[in-house]
Simulated assay, not measured.
Amino acid sequence: MADLQDELQSLAEPGDLLDTAQTAPLAPQPPPGSPQERARALLADHPVVDGHSGLPWALRDLAWYDLQLGDSGVDTDVLRLREGRVGALLWSLRLPERIEAERAVGATLEQLDLVRSVVAAHPEGLRLARSAGQVIDARNCGRVAVVLGPAGAAALDDSLGILRVLHTLGLRVLTLAGASWAGEAGLTRFGEEVLREMNRLGVLADVSGASDATIARALALSRTPVLCTRSAARSLRAHPDNLSDALLAELGAAKGLCLVPSSPERSGPGVQDVADHLDHVRAIAGPESVGLSGHAPGAGAAPGYPHLIAELLRRGWPETDVTLLTWGNMQRVLRSADFAARAARERRKPSAARISELDPTDA
Score class of each variant (00 low, 15 high):
M1V: 09
L4V: 12
S10E: 09
L17P: 10
D19L: 04
T23W: 14
P31F: 13
R40C: 02
L55N: 04
W57S: 09
W57A: 11
A58N: 09
D61I: 01
L62G: 07
G73P: 01
D77A: 00
V78I: 10
V78D: 09
L90N: 01
L90F: 11
W91M: 05
R94Y: 15
E100Y: 15
E102W: 14
R103W: 14
V105N: 05
V105R: 08
A107R: 05
L112W: 09
R116S: 04
R116D: 01
P123H: 12
G125V: 08
R127N: 04
L128F: 12
R130Q: 10
N140D: 12
N140W: 12
R143P: 01
A151M: 03
I162W: 09
R164C: 06
R164A: 10
L166F: 14
V173Q: 08
T175W: 05
T175P: 11
L176Y: 10
G178M: 10
S180R: 10
T188S: 06
E192T: 03
E193V: 15
V194Y: 08
L204C: 05
V207S: 09
S208I: 05
A210V: 00
S211G: 05
D212L: 05
L219I: 00
S222C: 10
V226M: 03
L227N: 13
A232D: 01
H239G: 00
A246E: 11
A246K: 03
A254K: 07
K255F: 07
V260L: 01
S263N: 12
G268F: 10
P269V: 01
G270T: 04
D273V: 04
V274K: 06
A275F: 07
D276P: 09
D276N: 05
L278P: 02
V281L: 03
G286I: 00
E288T: 15
G291Q: 09
G294N: 05
G304L: 00
P306T: 00
H307K: 11
I309D: 15
E319C: 04
D321C: 03
T323D: 15
T323I: 04
L325K: 02
T326E: 07
N329E: 10
N329W: 11
V333Y: 08
V333D: 11
R347N: 07
K349N: 11
S351P: 14
P360A: 02
A363E: 14
